[in-house]
Design a protein around this nucleic acid. Structure first.
Lengths: 253, 253
DNA sequence: GAGTGGTCTAGACCACACG
DNA sequence: GTGTGGTCTAGACCACTCA
């Protein structure tokens, strides 16, 4: 006898809240719609604001919500599929439409990047900053490290300069004969600069894509690109894109 | 005259804390070492425990720390590179060493998965649960949806069954002639089951890898695999692995 | 049982967007 | 100015691990 169900797992409040909210989003809200503010929501559910926020954070991490200070919390659109497959012609400089150079400096790359490039630990390289846009929104911010050896025709100019020089570096890079590339994806958090470029707050979750470009038997360039984890889904399509995100899979289940 | 530097950006405390802690980790701590407990750390830095925790959360998200209830906070080892490139022979059933089947059921897949598979919305498929291990640790939990049409030799058994039947399904799958695959990566949070399988708390950040396997002009199977985002770095190597993680790049800079 | 991280509360003030 | 989300505090209790 006794209880029909052993209450073995007292679910945390924020977890239960997240579930309830998630279902409400599916049924009662449209994409772009504004939710009630956090204080109201917390009161409505009878929890402290911090607890409510913990649930909202989870939902934002899953790409369901978008929160903007001074504005409010809105229902996020489904994640955008972004092609990052190596089979495409995405050798730096080839896809001028997607990536937009913003700056070009000469600096000493992080030691590990230098190791990839085969440059001396204190050797300076060109550093091109680029932004990738999609559907009006910035989706990724990139630092592209290009050693002088890869672009011998260019002088190493000390002073930071604009998109013009950046395009020059990319143009020179495009002359090389691509021999392949390497890619790795991991979770990270946006630094101050990247955050500004991605229109997010510092610390926002990002997918860090590190790419090595090979040419002439060497590593011709290394790219460290940070994609907005809240709005992006990285696709490595061999036979076309995955049209439906995990997010939508979950909703539909 | 006046201040030499306009204090334009009052950095949040937790952000500054994170930076300080990060540097301390680099210089004063070894991998696996236990940090002082949260109450002590908070007191030492003169902040509330919640603020200290916000900094620790960030560092955990970046794979620098590992926190375990009842135990303490330890310095995490560098992330493990996990190969998820499509070029490998990772057709389900081929790589028995990495993936370990734990269960096999018959169930109706989520609608979106059904759409990928081309099955009816209410049509049941085999569902194989697998776990991927690496260096003693579980790194990924997977649900593999296999429609009956892909494994015609097998009867659809209603009752859930163990690894034995799962291996049977995989064996049948391996008979098919692979025609390619599709892959997408996005950020998610672990559900209750996945969390248990990955030895993490529910809600832990994961990298969700959705794969479509093609054979016989159809989608033969769909896999939804969740990788531990804190400990894993997904590699798509065309010319070998990236040996050095973003993490280490940052440390070395 | 002692010590750890995980959850939760009820406040407060700040930075930002918008009218 | 008003309202929003972002940060921060100083507590409390709970769930878990381990000796």
């Amino acid at each position: 006898m006794g209880t029909t169900q052993l209450e073995t797992v007292p679910e945390p409040k924020y977890w239960h809240l997240k579930t309830v909210l998630s279902e409400a989003l599916d049924t009662d809200f449209a994409v772009g719609e504004i939710l009630p503010n956090e204080r109201d929501l917390a009161a409505r559910f009878g929890v402290a604001r911090a607890t409510l926020r913990q649930a909202l954070e989870q939902l934002e991490l899953e790409g369901r919500l978008q929160r903007r200070r001074g504005v409010g919390t809105t229902v996020a659109p489904p994640r955008v599929g972004v092609d990052v497959s190596a089979s495409r012609s995405d050798w730096p400089g080839a896809d001028q439409h997607a990536w937009q150079p913003t700056e070009c400096t000469v600096a000493v790359p992080p030691a590990a990047v230098a190791a990839h490039l085969g440059t001396e630990p204190d050797e300076r390289t060109h550093v091109v900053r680029r932004v990738r846009k999609g559907h009006d929104q910035p989706v990724a911010a990139e630092l592209l490290y290009v050693p002088a050896a890869s672009v011998p025709a260019l002088p190493a100019i000390d002073a930071p300069s604009g998109p013009a020089l950046a395009r020059g570096v990319l143009r020179e890079l495009a002359r090389l004969e691509p021999e392949g590339q390497d890619r790795a994806v991991e979770l990270g958090s946006a630094g101050a600069v990247d955050a500004k470029e991605l229109d997010r707050l510092p610390g926002a979750p990002v997918l860090v894509v590190t790419t090595r470009y090979f040419a002439g038997g060497r590593t011709a360039a290394v790219s460290v690109a940070t994609y907005r984890a809240d709005t992006c889904r990285l696709t490595f399509g061999a036979q076309g894109d995955l049209e439906i995100s995990h997010e939508e899979q979950r909703r539909a289940s």
